[in-house]
């Protein structure tokens, strides 16, 4: 299955970006094949408003099952839910470590936003 991680850079060694909507990059990893795609998120990083909504819509277009990130706000969470994408928050460290934690099955998806908008 395809899982997205919000990242500050373009590799598995990059740090997990704590911001969902305004993450610098979205790294999509297929957990079955370990294939990896990097998607620049600069447009949303600089958006005046609605960054979380746009990022969530982009992830829906990429067909991911889940997203691993630091925090999600209410608009982002609502959009992810409508797209049936599970959100896992509170991740730290590198993108690679986040993927490993996810694969180990030790993470639980959130059932609401964990921060206010624009935190």
């Amino acid at each position: 299955m395809k899982v997205a991680v919000t990242a500050k850079g373009t590799s598995l060694e990059s740090e997990v970006d704590q911001r969902f909507g305004r993450a610098k990059c979205l790294i999509v990893v297929d957990t079955d094949t370990d294939e990896m795609d990097v998607h620049d998120n600069e447009v949303n990083l600089n958006a005046a408003q609605g960054a979380g909504i746009q990022t969530a819509q982009n992830l829906a277009g990429l067909g991911v099952f889940a997203v691993l990130t630091g925090h999600v706000g209410p608009n982002a969470f609502r959009t992810l839910s409508a797209a049936e994408i599970k959100a896992y928050t509170g991740l730290h460290g590198t993108v690679g470590e986040a993927i490993e934690e996810f694969k180990a099955g030790s993470l639980n998806p959130v059932d609401s936003a964990d921060v206010e908008g624009h935190w």
Binding site: Q49, Q54, Q57, N75, A82
Partner: peptide, 18 residues
């Protein structure tokens, strides 16, 4: 231009405050 409408599959969402 303000992300006040999102479309996910067949689900349409509106964000009135945006």
């Amino acid at each position: 231009q303000y992300s006040a409408i999102a479309l996910l599959g067949k689900t349409i969402l509106t964000f009135p405050n945006l």
